[in-house]
């Protein structure tokens, strides 16, 4: 993505008040209690164990900690994680 396009997009987002996940493909996390985590715009699984799950994002990565984690469903863009979720670490690489 060229620098100009990125800047233009950022400007549109700010000017038109659009949600970032639609335009920038930013991840969107929906956490339901401590039981279900719904992540959109992920880029694949990096590591997976009952206690930890690492996901690649378009920029950076996401770490989910807990116990008895299960990938309920996985699609190219979306993932649903179930289990006892105790922590979510977001490691973004901002510009």
């Amino acid at each position: 993505m060229s620098r100009f396009v990125r800047k233009f997009r950022k400007w549109t987002v700010d000017a038109l008040d659009l949600p970032g996940d639609l335009v920038f493909n930013l991840p969107r996390l929906t956490l339901i209690g401590g039981k279900q985590l719904y992540i959109e715009n992920h880029r694949g699984v990096v590591f997976f164990s009952p206690e930890q799950l690492q996901l690649e994002l378009s920029q950076g990565s996401l770490e989910v900690e807990g116990s008895g984690l299960v990938i309920k469903e996985i699609l190219p863009q979306e993932i649903v994680i179930e289990g006892k979720i105790e922590g979510i670490k977001y490691r973004g690489t901002e510009e």
């Binding site: 694949g44 309920k72 996985i74 190219p76």
Partner: peptide, 23 residues
Amino acid sequence: SIELLVNELTQQGMQVWDVKPLP
């Protein structure tokens, strides 16, 4: 590299569900 397999599966549009790591 099970994670890789899962990623590949989803990339190819195959449905995978209830992925559960065993001890």
